[in-house]
Write a protein that binds this DNA or RNA. Sequence first.
RNA 1: GGCGGCGUACCCAAGUGGCUAAGGGAGAGGUCUGCAAAACCUCGAUUCAGCGGUUCGAAUCCGCUCGCCGCCUCCA
Length: 491
Amino acid sequence: MKIFNTMTGKKEDFIPLVQGKVGMYACGVTVYDYCHIGHARSAIVFDVIYRYFKYKGFDIKFIRNFTDIDDKIIKKAKEENISWDSVARKYIDEYYKDMDMLAIARADVEPKATDHIEEMIQIIKGLIEKGIAYEIAEGENKSVYFSVEKFPDYGRLSKKDLNELLSGARVDVDERKSNPLDFALWKASKEGEPWWDSPWGKGRPGWHIECTAMSIKHLGESIDIHGGGADLIFPHHENEIAQSEAYTNKPFARYWVHNGFITIDKEKMSKSLGNFFTIKEVLDKYDAEVVRLFMLSSHYRSPIEFSEEQLKETEASLERYYSTISRMDEFISQNAKKDKQAMKGSDLINWFNSIVDRFKERFEEAMDDDFNTAIATGNTFELLREINRFIDSKPEGQAAAGAIIRAKEALNLVGKVFHIFRRTPYEWNIDLLKVKKIPYSASQIQEKINERNSARKNKDWTLADNIRNELQEAGILLEDKREGTSWKVKV
RNA sequence: GGCGGCGUACCCAAGUGGCUAAGGGAGAGGUCUGCAAAACCUCGAUUCAGCGGUUCGAAUCCGCUCGCCGCCUCCA
């Protein structure tokens, strides 16, 4: 297995600290607002990485935290005139609603920063004792800063040179800090702000220290994988490394994994630019599976240009998947009971079986190569074409049905790791009726179909076509087949 | 200004030294069909931003140019 490591800028063989085990930490969200689809991407990427490690038989422990105390949360609380912790609670709830919709698995531990104040204080104390952190008085209380100059490796992850950072510094120059790049481990409480008791009086933790504390507590001093969005590389992850390694004298994380951004009109989606879509907005118009597949159809490190057009294309791809499954199911039910005498096309069946076997191998090859979900999705749609070709060649009998069953299992393998392809074609269409707000229920559609079928029996093509058109205008397509008429939602 | 990345068909997107440059969407033609849909078949980049170079051989490595983006400040 190869993983691209931000630290070295290269793909490296994945060698876990303890054989067969993986400790992985992903930086979660700051809970002060609804999540946007950039958060969704990060969540989906690490969800699939998590599921793939499990699929490969690793015993993985995955931690994803919540930053539940922070300037933005405090600001939001003031604006809405509610307490900071009710802001945090509200957006944690909303986060879970979004993630459940997107079928993101829960991490093994989902810790909150404010549940680890004591651990953070211990680490900060340790850093002060080592002379790497220092205190600054702020009235009755004190703040604590990390001295970047005391950590020689500072800048290694983000490939930044301390002097160059300084010369181009856009950071606030605080005269009391010994270096403008020094960052807060502990912030003295200002009037009206939430606070915790500490050796430095009333205050609250800085942003970066929480991840150090939670990572060490839940996974130990050294872990295998630490990740998050690429915008966390600097300063957040750089600072985490500095504090953690200065404190433990051990390597903090072996592999640094960062997902790329979502862009709108080629620009990074961000709150400040206002060019973002919330997860809720997108899920109001598109099925969650469409969003997952959309994210996975490009490599996790590439930027993804987000647009409705892209989502529609992905929706069409999924439609292709489900309509193929529908054909497969029909084929299986028609052939499963036929005896061996009825078998036709055994060479073809062998050929097809070998394609399916190769597909399974190629799936792992793709995923083993830095989680290349884009290749894997490409392969999946190639397999769909092979399946359709196989069915079109009209093989018959149990062996043919068996081959199709094996192909379905192969698709389920991808579905399991990507956590898509979870429904039956019928369920997919029922859900599409809802998401596309089509004013017909399944039973109403069936009534129309029955009505049309009697018209067809009487060769009343005008009435039959009128019914077809009526449904089509509502977004429903009818398919006449030998076995009868079925319907699906037009995408 | 410093550092990093990207530029592959109409659109999206893999491929990072060597079989015919995956796959999806859109388009054109065909088979099938009462009509349609689906599916399948065929067509579509002699070419990978441009220009040089290395090599028996490059979209893939090196250099330069052009264009775009990100980080350097909170950010998934």
